[in-house]
Design a protein around this nucleic acid. Structure first.
Length: 874
RNA sequence: GCGGGCGUGGCGGAACUGGUAGACGCGCUGGACUCAAAAUCCAGUUCUGGUGACAGAGUGUCGGUUCGAUUCCGACCGCCCGCACCA
């Protein structure tokens, strides 16, 4: 066989890894069947965008997923571990514009390259289920989902103020705007009014929030982020009657408040500059118009908001206070009121809201506290610079005096609900959400076409299911900015499916986040001619363990949660939550290198040396001094990447896999370094040596348990079974760095074991080696196969069951308890496992060490925690 | 500003529900093997004092609870992440 090496030789991963990969492939070991009766386990890593080439940093989460997949397979599960490509999106169009290459060609070429790269890593992926979201087969089903969602009332077409990215020339979702800039282009986003397609994610706001509580295997951090994003707030919508005629004849002004209890502290009303009434006022009031224009000029970026002072314009309008006879409140237009939340208007209570206080202080409005802390003196309690938002009792508030905040809210709501203004109740209890509907229209070519047709007489008409898919045309040009579909000569011309008259296709395509919102469901039946096969999807889902970056904590994960709800409503599957377990992994970081004031250099061009504690770098070819820069996330732009090819060539994939999961906990970043890789590689060689150097005298595989184990043999057997227990536990909890530490430990025990030529010693040695191989197999699958074969097995490790720890060996007859005197460890105390408290106490008091440290004092107290510790207090 | 997390040797990091602080790895030091080197193996490696047995100190700082605190509580310092005029 090509991979066999004589036992004296070093392990040669280059040949061995390719060999075992081909064996796995030939036997189809990782192809999984939907008919398999064993319990299912679905492990999935967030699929990659095919950007060009993969570097080792991309492969860490796939390695984690692969460890889980291989472990679960060994535990007897039917494991689904698929891979695909999130293949639509802007970079393909950018490449088209820059390099005159078609987005489709560019994308599929990248996929081919990256697939080969991934295969070098030896992941146990079911490649037969692979697809790309830009495959017509996939996006055709996505169009089907769109039509079904529309049928179910989950798609809306509405005119909305949207975030317009002037560089990418497209609309962005709120989630895609970061600090006022496009998440991809970095350009300052403008506000534009456009008619767009929306998914009604806000219909599920309450449910999406509520069900977060049940996601116990999600990181707390992600749940909190989603909770904040959904942003539920309970309050009251209140109508304030105008005290005099308004320009346009409104009877009342409606505001939303979460603090109706502070109504007696109200000092003013404030409208958003985008409020319809503000616009009407501006038509006749030049100063109002100027103020609104000024507000719009101010950016919406984080810096702009932070530095912006509260400012307002007094419209001259007045409203009546609902409870104070004769009192009126001025109506301002204010720069800090958002149109997008509540009604776009508020009442200001300066004493109990910091923003309102800042505003009131600037314009000399009265600050009247109406809530005071329980123990505050009503005479002296005052609010000047800091609003009081804590708990307390109401005062200065007429019929609310003495009530708690909650009682006050309820009382105000009760009274106002009973009154009528403008043909409706003066107040309505309302729940508001920060979460907006999901605008999915993108003015782009490389995305899933929205299957709708616009007809002059029939309006927006869905493409009949029989006419799907609406395929992207191949003959397009990228000479001008904007959407090539929109200026394509023929593609958009189509007859109306309803009336047959000439009509035009929707030329917008879907946000690429739609593509990734259901791919996990498609993997369960990737070739089906419906989006899913519901029974199959329900059998596989939810994903048992999902692994990916924290950067998707909101966008992708929230959209996917919405999608399964929508797919449930439309009968494509029947579950609520797509991902039962979520793990967010840390990144791979690497030092950066650059020539003094020059460009970044890739690691392979740099030689790093260390002498007397300082590290220096020089150019591998020229010898010139190189600056060692900060440690950063591996990225093309910093050129601090390492490719799977180099690793595979020099050390093998197993070394890389082992290294990436050693040392650093998986949720934290790991620093890639040459020294670290060397260290991991030494361990690979060490395992190989332990196996090859021992195998001559070992009993054949499967020899029955002998008797007559020596003390050392027993110790090794205990270590073996402790390792099985500990590694298993660590992998179950995704604590890969600990699992690796336990494997190291077992290797150390094996290295120190003298087996002599006793049958029992050799048997214990074999047992330990086999455990070492099986326990390290999920991490280093190629090495494990080579070792397993060397140990004389016919079956592959990939077909072998996970080892079981023998409980009898883990139960020790004697236990060593730390012996403390006054809380400080002084000695060890060896007692029988089932020794009574009294026996242990007596033994402790009899101990010389205890006597010495008590220095003649009597023991006042002896604390015995069985199996844990003994503490003598004196 | 609000919310969350973290702070342990030269370094990455362990320590289950309050019970031996520093597992495991990297690095370093010494030794063995070798003509020599690499590789490998063995020993040591928190700090201070001591040849040594050993003793004292020690988990960001200060305090508290406890027989006992890296772990729980309070205050503070530092770092990281998320959100941010959401009424």
């Amino acid at each position: 066989m090509p991979f066999m090496t004589a036992s004296t030789e070093r392990y040669n991963p280059r040949n061995v890894e390719a060999y075992w990969q081909s064996v796995w492939e030939e036997r189809g070991l990782f192809r999984c069947s939907n008919e398999d009766p064993r319990p299912k386990y679905y492990v999935l890593e967030m699929f990659p965008y095919p950007s060009g080439r993969i570097h080792i940093g991309h492969t860490r989460n796939y390695t984690m997923g692969d460890v889980v997949a291989r472990y679960r397979r060994a535990r007897g599960y039917n494991v689904l571990h698929p891979m695909g490509w999130d293949a639509f999106g802007m970079p393909a169009e950018n490449a088209a514009m820059q390099n005159k290459v078609h987005p489709k060609e560019w994308t599929y070429a990248n996929i081919a390259t990256m697939r080969d790269q991934l295969k070098l890593m030896g992941f146990s992926i079911d490649w037969s289920r692979e697809f790309a979201t830009c495959d017509v087969d996939y996006y055709a089903q996505q169009q089907r989902l769109f039509l079904d969602f529309r049928e179910a009332g989950l798609v809306k077409r509405k005119s909305a103020k949207v975030n317009w990215d002037p560089v990418d020339q497209t609309v962005l979702a709120n989630e895609q705007v970061i600090d006022g800039r496009g998440w991809r282009s970095g350009a300052v986003v403008e506000q534009r009014e456009l008619t767009q397609w929306f998914f009604a994610i806000s219909d599920y706001a309450d449910d999406l929030l509520e069900e977060l509580k049940g996601l116990s295997r999600w990181p707390e951090k992600v749940r909190v982020m989603q909770e904040k994003w959904i942003g539920r707030s309970e309050g009251l919508k209140v109508r304030f009657e105008f005290a005099d005629e308004t320009v346009s004849g409104e009877e009342y002004l409606e505001v939303f408040t979460t603090r109706p209890d502070t109504l007696f502290g109200a000092a003013f009303m404030a409208l958003s500059p985008d409020h319809p009434l503000a616009a009407k006022l501006a038509a006749t009031d030049e100063k109002a118009a100027a103020f609104i224009a000024e507000c719009h000029r101010r950016g919406t970026s984080a810096e702009a908001i932070e530095t912006a002072e509260k400012s307002g314009y007094d419209t001259g309008l007045r409203v009546r206070h609902p409870f104070v006879e004769g009192a009126v409140l001025p109506v301002y237009i204010a720069n800090f009121v958002l149109m997008g939340y509540g009604t776009g208007a508020i009442f200001g209570c300066p004493a109990h809201d910091q923003r309102d206080l800042d505003f009131a202080n600037r314009y000399g409005l009265p600050v009247k506290p109406v809530v005071k802390p329980e123990d505050a003196d009503p005479e002296n309690f005052a609010v000047t610079d800091e609003a009081y938002t804590g708990p307390g009792r109401l005062y200065h508030s007429d019929f609310l005096d003495g009530m708690t905040i909650e009682e006050g809210k309820d009382e105000v709501a009760r009274r106002l609900e009973a009154r009528t203004i403008g043909g409706g109740p003066q107040a309505v209890r309302e729940v508001n959400f920060r979460l907006r509907d999901w605008g999915i229209s993108r003015q782009r070519y490389w995305g899933c076409p929205i299957p709708m047709i616009h007809c002059e007489s029939c309006g927006s008409v869905p493409v009949p299911v029989a006419d799907l898919p609406v395929e992207l045309p191949d003959d397009i040009d990228f000479d001008k900015p904007g959407n090539p579909l929109d200026r394509h000569p023929t593609w958009k011309n189509v007859d109306c499916p309803k009336c047959g008259k000439p009509a035009r296709r929707e030329t917008d395509t879907m946000d690429t986040f739609v593509d990734s919102s259901w791919y996990f469901a498609r993997f369960t039946a990737p070739k089906a001619d419906t989006p899913t096969i519901p029974d199959v999807a329900d059998a596989w889902l939810p994903v048992d363990q999902y692994i990916g970056g924290i950067e998707h904590a909101i966008l992708h994960l929230l959209y996917s949660r919405f999608f399964v709800r929508a797919m449930q409503k439309t009968g494509h599957l029947d579950l609520k939550e797509p991902f039962a377990g979520l793990f967010t992994q840390g990144m791979v970081v690497h030092e950066t290198y650059r020539e003094p004031n020059g460009p970044f250099l890739p690691p392979e061009d740099v030689i790093v040396e260390e002498s007397e504690g300082t590290r220096r770098a020089r150019h591998a070819k020229t010898g010139a001094a190189i600056e060692i820069g900060p440690i950063e996330k591996m990225s093309k732009s910093k050129r601090n990447t390492v490719g799977p090819e180099e690793i595979s060539r020099n050390y093998g994939a197993d070394t890389a896999r082992w290294f990436m999961l050693s040392d650093s906990p998986p949720e934290r970043d790991v620093q890639w370094s040459a020294a670290g890789v060397e260290g991991a590689h030494r361990f690979v060689q060490r395992v190989w040596r332990l196996v090859t150097s021992a195998k001559e005298g070992l009993p054949p595989a499967g020899t029955a348990l002998p008797s007559g184990f020596s003390e050392a043999d027993e110790a090794l057997r205990r270590a073996t079974h402790a390792a099985i227990r500990d590694v298993t536990d660590a992998i179950e909890n995704l604590r890969f760095n600990r699992a690796i530490a336990f494997v190291h430990d077992l290797a150390n025990q094996i290295g120190g074991h003298e087996c002599g030529d006793r049958d029992s010693g050799l048997w214990a040695h074999r047992e330990a080696l086999e455990a070492l191989v099986l326990l390290s197999a999920p991490f280093m699958p190629h090495l494990a196969e080579a070792c397993w074969q060397t140990l004389g097995h016919d079956k592959l490790v990939a077909e072998t069951a996970w080892p079981e720890a023998d409980a009898a060996l883990l139960r020790e007859d004697e236990v060593t308890l730390p012996l403390q005197v006054n809380g400080k460890k002084r000695d060890d105390l060896v007692v029988a496992r089932d020794a009574s408290k009294e026996t242990i106490e007596a033994a402790a008091l009899a101990s010389e060490t205890v006597q010495r440290f008590l220095e003649g004092r009597p023991a006042r107290k002896v604390i015995v925690v069985p199996g844990r510790i003994v503490n003598v207090v004196g």
